[in-house]
Protein backbone atom coordinates (compact mmCIF):
# COMPACT_ATOMS: atom_id res chain seq x y z
CA UNK A 1 0.00 0.00 0.00
CA UNK A 2 2.97 2.28 0.29
CA UNK A 3 4.13 1.58 -3.23
CA UNK A 4 3.14 5.04 -4.36
CA UNK A 5 5.78 6.51 -2.11
CA UNK A 6 8.73 7.77 -4.07
CA UNK A 7 10.36 9.21 -0.98
CA UNK A 8 10.20 6.56 1.72
CA UNK A 9 11.89 8.27 4.64
CA UNK A 10 14.35 5.42 5.20
CA UNK A 11 17.48 7.50 4.73
CA UNK A 12 18.91 4.95 2.29
CA UNK A 13 19.75 6.54 -1.07
CA UNK A 14 17.85 4.94 -3.92
CA UNK A 15 16.68 5.63 -7.44
CA UNK A 16 12.99 5.76 -6.71
CA UNK A 17 12.73 9.19 -8.33
CA UNK A 18 12.62 7.41 -11.64
CA UNK A 19 9.20 6.06 -10.64
CA UNK A 20 7.76 9.52 -10.22
CA UNK A 21 4.91 9.69 -12.73
CA UNK A 22 4.53 12.43 -15.29
CA UNK A 23 3.19 15.62 -13.78
CA UNK A 24 -0.48 16.48 -14.03
CA UNK A 25 -1.14 18.22 -17.34
CA UNK A 26 -1.32 21.65 -15.75
CA UNK A 27 2.14 21.24 -14.25
CA UNK A 28 3.97 20.12 -17.35
CA UNK A 29 6.84 22.48 -18.01
CA UNK A 30 9.38 22.92 -20.77
CA UNK A 31 11.67 20.68 -22.72
CA UNK A 32 14.80 22.80 -22.91
CA UNK A 33 18.13 21.09 -23.35
CA UNK A 34 18.79 19.49 -19.95
CA UNK A 35 21.64 20.69 -17.81
CA UNK A 36 23.86 18.06 -16.21
CA UNK A 37 24.26 17.79 -12.51
CA UNK A 38 25.99 15.37 -10.22
CA UNK A 39 23.32 13.52 -8.30
CA UNK A 40 25.61 12.46 -5.49
CA UNK A 41 28.27 15.09 -5.34
CA UNK A 42 27.39 18.09 -3.34
CA UNK A 43 30.04 20.57 -4.34
CA UNK A 44 31.14 21.33 -0.84
CA UNK A 45 28.06 23.34 -0.09
CA UNK A 46 26.63 20.93 2.40
CA UNK A 47 29.48 18.63 3.22
CA UNK A 48 28.34 18.20 6.77
CA UNK A 49 24.80 17.39 5.85
CA UNK A 50 24.75 13.90 4.39
CA UNK A 51 25.21 12.21 7.70
CA UNK A 52 22.52 14.25 9.29
CA UNK A 53 20.29 13.69 6.33
CA UNK A 54 20.79 9.98 6.62
CA UNK A 55 19.97 10.11 10.30
CA UNK A 56 16.85 12.17 9.83
CA UNK A 57 13.81 10.65 11.45
CA UNK A 58 10.59 11.30 9.70
CA UNK A 59 7.07 10.20 10.44
CA UNK A 60 4.56 8.67 8.14
CA UNK A 61 2.53 11.80 7.71
CA UNK A 62 5.52 13.87 6.68
CA UNK A 63 6.53 11.21 4.16
CA UNK A 64 3.10 11.33 2.59
CA UNK A 65 3.09 15.09 2.39
CA UNK A 66 6.54 15.09 0.77
CA UNK A 67 5.28 12.68 -1.83
CA UNK A 68 2.16 14.71 -2.39
CA UNK A 69 4.33 17.72 -3.14
CA UNK A 70 6.55 15.68 -5.43
CA UNK A 71 3.60 14.26 -7.32
CA UNK A 72 1.74 17.51 -7.69
CA UNK A 73 4.85 19.58 -8.34
CA UNK A 74 3.91 21.99 -5.68
CA UNK A 75 6.05 23.66 -3.02
CA UNK A 76 5.96 22.16 0.47
CA UNK A 77 5.40 24.69 3.23
CA UNK A 78 6.76 23.24 6.48
CA UNK A 79 5.83 24.81 9.80
CA UNK A 80 6.78 23.83 13.31
CA UNK A 81 8.65 24.94 16.38
CA UNK A 82 12.37 25.69 16.11
CA UNK A 83 14.47 22.58 16.02
CA UNK A 84 11.87 20.08 14.93
CA UNK A 85 13.76 19.44 11.70
CA UNK A 86 12.04 21.60 9.14
CA UNK A 87 15.19 22.41 7.21
CA UNK A 88 16.67 18.96 7.66
CA UNK A 89 13.71 17.54 5.80
CA UNK A 90 15.00 19.07 2.57
CA UNK A 91 18.42 17.53 3.07
CA UNK A 92 16.92 14.19 3.92
CA UNK A 93 14.88 14.16 0.72
CA UNK A 94 17.86 15.24 -1.39
CA UNK A 95 19.99 12.58 0.20
CA UNK A 96 17.56 9.73 -0.16
CA UNK A 97 16.44 10.53 -3.68
CA UNK A 98 19.95 11.43 -4.79
CA UNK A 99 18.96 14.86 -6.02
CA UNK A 100 22.33 16.49 -5.56
CA UNK A 101 23.19 19.36 -3.33
CA UNK A 102 20.40 21.30 -1.68
CA UNK A 103 20.01 24.84 -2.99
CA UNK A 104 19.56 26.83 0.17
CA UNK A 105 18.15 30.32 0.15
CA UNK A 106 18.04 31.87 3.60
CA UNK A 107 15.48 34.63 3.71
CA UNK A 108 15.81 37.90 5.54
CA UNK A 109 13.50 40.83 5.56
CA UNK A 110 15.64 42.36 2.83
CA UNK A 111 15.54 39.41 0.47
CA UNK A 112 13.98 40.16 -2.86
CA UNK A 113 12.94 37.87 -5.63
CA UNK A 114 15.86 39.00 -7.75
CA UNK A 115 18.35 37.98 -5.04
CA UNK A 116 17.06 34.47 -5.38
CA UNK A 117 17.06 34.43 -9.16
CA UNK A 118 20.43 35.79 -10.26
CA UNK A 119 23.18 38.33 -9.72
CA UNK A 120 24.68 40.49 -12.45
CA UNK A 121 28.18 41.92 -12.19
CA UNK A 122 27.85 44.96 -14.43
CA UNK A 123 31.00 46.67 -13.22
CA UNK A 124 33.07 43.61 -13.85
CA UNK A 125 31.71 43.41 -17.31
CA UNK A 126 32.43 47.03 -17.98
CA UNK A 127 35.97 46.73 -16.74
CA UNK A 128 36.65 43.83 -19.00
CA UNK A 129 35.21 45.37 -22.10
CA UNK A 130 38.56 46.99 -22.85
CA UNK A 131 40.57 43.85 -22.35
CA UNK A 132 38.45 41.67 -24.58
CA UNK A 133 39.18 42.26 -28.19
CA UNK A 134 36.32 42.48 -30.55
CA UNK A 135 37.52 39.32 -32.28
CA UNK A 136 36.91 36.93 -29.45
CA UNK A 137 33.24 36.34 -28.91
CA UNK A 138 32.29 37.67 -25.51
CA UNK A 139 31.33 35.19 -22.85
CA UNK A 140 28.45 37.21 -21.48
CA UNK A 141 27.39 34.46 -19.16
CA UNK A 142 30.35 34.82 -16.86
CA UNK A 143 29.06 38.08 -15.47
CA UNK A 144 25.94 36.34 -14.28
CA UNK A 145 25.42 33.94 -11.49
CA UNK A 146 22.15 32.25 -10.79
CA UNK A 147 20.82 32.42 -7.25
CA UNK A 148 19.42 29.38 -5.47
CA UNK A 149 15.93 29.92 -6.85
CA UNK A 150 17.30 30.64 -10.31
CA UNK A 151 19.32 27.47 -10.21
CA UNK A 152 16.36 25.42 -9.12
CA UNK A 153 14.45 26.74 -12.13
CA UNK A 154 17.22 25.70 -14.52
CA UNK A 155 16.32 22.92 -16.95
CA UNK A 156 17.56 19.89 -15.03
CA UNK A 157 16.06 16.59 -16.00
CA UNK A 158 15.39 15.71 -12.37
CA UNK A 159 13.92 18.02 -9.78
CA UNK A 160 16.50 19.89 -7.74
CA UNK A 161 15.88 20.46 -4.05
CA UNK A 162 15.40 24.09 -3.10
CA UNK A 163 15.25 25.08 0.54
CA UNK A 164 13.72 28.51 1.10
CA UNK A 165 14.58 28.91 4.74
CA UNK A 166 12.45 30.98 7.11
CA UNK A 167 10.21 32.49 4.48
CA UNK A 168 8.16 34.05 7.26
CA UNK A 169 11.02 36.50 7.83
CA UNK A 170 10.57 37.90 4.38
CA UNK A 171 9.31 41.18 3.15
CA UNK A 172 5.61 41.11 2.71
CA UNK A 173 5.69 40.96 -1.06
CA UNK A 174 8.06 38.06 -1.45
CA UNK A 175 5.57 35.19 -1.11
CA UNK A 176 3.45 36.53 -3.92
CA UNK A 177 6.49 37.15 -6.12
CA UNK A 178 7.63 33.61 -5.50
CA UNK A 179 4.22 32.27 -6.28
CA UNK A 180 4.44 33.70 -9.75
CA UNK A 181 7.75 32.00 -10.49
CA UNK A 182 6.48 28.71 -9.10
CA UNK A 183 3.33 28.91 -11.18
CA UNK A 184 5.07 29.72 -14.45
CA UNK A 185 8.23 27.66 -13.93
CA UNK A 186 10.32 30.26 -15.70
CA UNK A 187 11.92 33.63 -15.26
CA UNK A 188 13.74 36.12 -17.40
CA UNK A 189 17.12 37.79 -17.05
CA UNK A 190 16.42 41.17 -18.66
CA UNK A 191 20.12 41.96 -19.03
CA UNK A 192 20.43 38.90 -21.26
CA UNK A 193 17.18 39.09 -23.15
CA UNK A 194 18.07 42.65 -24.05
CA UNK A 195 21.16 41.45 -25.93
CA UNK A 196 19.52 38.29 -27.22
CA UNK A 197 20.12 39.36 -30.80
CA UNK A 198 23.86 39.40 -30.24
CA UNK A 199 24.27 36.66 -27.73
CA UNK A 200 21.40 34.24 -28.18
CA UNK A 201 23.04 31.72 -25.88
CA UNK A 202 24.83 32.32 -22.65
CA UNK A 203 26.35 29.89 -20.23
CA UNK A 204 25.61 30.97 -16.70
CA UNK A 205 27.08 29.66 -13.48
CA UNK A 206 24.56 28.09 -11.11
CA UNK A 207 24.50 28.71 -7.37
CA UNK A 208 26.05 25.37 -6.56
CA UNK A 209 29.04 25.72 -8.89
CA UNK A 210 27.92 22.78 -10.97
CA UNK A 211 27.87 22.64 -14.73
CA UNK A 212 26.99 25.91 -16.40
CA UNK A 213 23.38 26.45 -17.35
CA UNK A 214 22.64 27.26 -20.95
CA UNK A 215 20.34 30.27 -21.12
CA UNK A 216 18.62 31.02 -24.39
CA UNK A 217 17.32 34.50 -25.09
CA UNK A 218 17.64 35.40 -21.45
CA UNK A 219 14.97 32.93 -20.37
CA UNK A 220 15.51 30.23 -17.78
CA UNK A 221 12.84 27.53 -17.86
CA UNK A 222 12.55 24.44 -15.80
CA UNK A 223 12.10 20.91 -17.15
CA UNK A 224 11.29 19.22 -13.89
CA UNK A 225 9.70 21.31 -11.26
CA UNK A 226 12.09 21.48 -8.29
CA UNK A 227 11.22 20.03 -4.94
CA UNK A 228 10.76 23.24 -2.97
CA UNK A 229 10.73 23.26 0.81
CA UNK A 230 9.61 26.52 2.37
CA UNK A 231 10.12 26.64 6.11
CA UNK A 232 8.30 28.92 8.45
CA UNK A 233 8.39 29.44 12.18
CA UNK A 234 4.86 30.70 11.95
CA UNK A 235 5.86 34.28 12.54
CA UNK A 236 3.36 35.54 10.10
CA UNK A 237 0.33 34.84 8.00
CA UNK A 238 0.68 34.18 4.34
CA UNK A 239 -1.72 35.37 1.69
CA UNK A 240 -4.44 32.78 1.11
CA UNK A 241 -3.49 32.46 -2.56
CA UNK A 242 -0.02 31.48 -1.51
CA UNK A 243 -1.26 28.93 0.99
CA UNK A 244 -3.53 27.37 -1.59
CA UNK A 245 -0.63 26.77 -3.92
CA UNK A 246 1.45 25.06 -1.28
CA UNK A 247 1.23 21.61 0.22
CA UNK A 248 1.26 22.30 3.93
CA UNK A 249 2.99 20.21 6.54
CA UNK A 250 3.17 20.87 10.24
CA UNK A 251 5.97 19.06 12.03
CA UNK A 252 5.09 18.38 15.65
CA UNK A 253 7.66 18.36 18.39
CA UNK A 254 9.07 14.82 18.51
CA UNK A 255 7.84 12.57 21.31
CA UNK A 256 10.05 10.32 23.42
CA UNK A 257 10.23 7.47 20.92
CA UNK A 258 11.24 9.64 18.07
CA UNK A 259 13.76 11.47 20.22
CA UNK A 260 15.27 8.16 21.15
CA UNK A 261 15.52 7.22 17.50
CA UNK A 262 17.04 10.56 16.63
CA UNK A 263 19.68 10.28 19.34
CA UNK A 264 20.39 6.77 18.24
CA UNK A 265 20.71 7.76 14.62
CA UNK A 266 23.06 10.62 15.30
CA UNK A 267 25.17 9.39 18.14
CA UNK A 268 24.83 5.64 17.86
CA UNK A 269 24.18 3.16 20.63
CA UNK A 270 26.96 4.59 22.74
CA UNK A 271 24.68 6.90 24.62
CA UNK A 272 23.71 4.99 27.73
CA UNK A 273 22.87 8.11 29.66
CA UNK A 274 20.73 9.40 26.81
CA UNK A 275 17.58 8.04 28.42
CA UNK A 276 17.96 10.30 31.45
CA UNK A 277 18.70 13.28 29.29
CA UNK A 278 15.71 12.58 27.07
CA UNK A 279 13.37 12.58 30.01
CA UNK A 280 15.03 15.71 31.39
CA UNK A 281 14.66 17.27 27.99
CA UNK A 282 10.99 16.33 27.71
CA UNK A 283 10.24 17.65 31.12
CA UNK A 284 11.97 20.93 30.43
CA UNK A 285 10.40 21.23 27.03
CA UNK A 286 6.97 21.11 28.61
CA UNK A 287 7.81 24.40 30.35
CA UNK A 288 9.58 26.32 27.62
CA UNK A 289 10.85 26.21 24.11
CA UNK A 290 13.68 23.75 23.43
CA UNK A 291 15.04 22.49 20.12
CA UNK A 292 15.86 18.89 19.37
CA UNK A 293 19.35 20.06 18.56
CA UNK A 294 19.86 20.97 22.15
CA UNK A 295 19.16 17.42 23.22
CA UNK A 296 21.73 16.12 20.79
CA UNK A 297 24.26 18.62 22.06
CA UNK A 298 23.52 17.69 25.62
CA UNK A 299 23.94 13.98 24.92
CA UNK A 300 27.12 14.65 23.03
CA UNK A 301 28.56 16.92 25.72
CA UNK A 302 27.59 14.57 28.46
CA UNK A 303 29.43 11.76 26.77
CA UNK A 304 32.61 13.62 26.00
CA UNK A 305 32.98 16.51 28.37
CA UNK A 306 31.69 15.15 31.63
CA UNK A 307 32.96 12.36 33.75
CA UNK A 308 30.99 9.33 34.69
CA UNK A 309 29.27 10.99 37.64
CA UNK A 310 25.61 11.57 37.01
CA UNK A 311 25.74 14.93 38.75
CA UNK A 312 28.21 16.24 36.19
CA UNK A 313 26.04 15.12 33.39
CA UNK A 314 23.13 16.94 34.89
CA UNK A 315 25.22 20.05 35.09
CA UNK A 316 26.32 19.77 31.48
CA UNK A 317 22.74 19.27 30.42
CA UNK A 318 21.78 22.41 32.28
CA UNK A 319 24.34 24.31 30.24
CA UNK A 320 22.82 23.26 26.97
CA UNK A 321 19.17 23.05 27.73
CA UNK A 322 18.53 26.78 27.96
CA UNK A 323 15.17 27.92 26.79
CA UNK A 324 15.05 29.55 23.43
CA UNK A 325 12.28 31.95 24.32
CA UNK A 326 13.55 32.97 27.71
CA UNK A 327 13.32 36.64 28.46
CA UNK A 328 16.59 38.10 29.52
CA UNK A 329 16.14 39.03 33.10
Amino acid sequence: MSDWLVYRGTGEPHDGIADLPEPPPWRVFYTDEPTRFDRDHDYGLSARWPLRAAAYQVDRHAVEMVNTALYLRRPLLVTGDPGVGKSSLAYAVAHELRLGSVLRWPITSRSTLKDGLYRYDAIGRLEEVDKVSAATPADVGRYFRLGPLGTAMAPYSLPRVLLVDEIDKSDIDLPNDLLDVFEEGLFEIPELSRVADTFAHAEVRPADDGARVAVTAGRVRCRAFPFVVLTSNGERDFPPAFLRRCVRLHLPAPGPDRLRAIVHAHLGEAAPHAETLISLFLERRSKGELATDQLLQAVYLARHAAGEAAADRGHVAELVLQYLNQDRR
Partner: peptide, 21 residues
Protein backbone atom coordinates in the same frame (compact mmCIF):
# COMPACT_ATOMS: atom_id res chain seq x y z
CA UNK B 1 -2.79 8.30 2.71
CA UNK B 2 -5.58 8.89 0.27
CA UNK B 3 -7.65 10.41 2.99
CA UNK B 4 -4.83 12.74 3.80
CA UNK B 5 -4.62 14.26 0.40
CA UNK B 6 -7.51 16.68 0.66
CA UNK B 7 -6.03 17.86 3.90
CA UNK B 8 -3.57 19.94 1.98
CA UNK B 9 -6.37 22.37 1.63
CA UNK B 10 -7.78 22.18 5.08
CA UNK B 11 -7.34 25.27 7.16
CA UNK B 12 -5.51 23.43 9.86
CA UNK B 13 -2.27 21.53 9.66
CA UNK B 14 -3.20 17.88 9.71
CA UNK B 15 -2.97 16.14 13.01
CA UNK B 16 0.41 14.60 13.42
CA UNK B 17 1.31 11.49 15.30
CA UNK B 18 3.42 11.89 18.35
CA UNK B 19 5.26 8.62 18.07
CA UNK B 20 7.26 7.32 15.15
CA UNK B 21 5.76 6.00 11.99
Amino acid sequence: AAADVPKTDSPQPPAAETADD
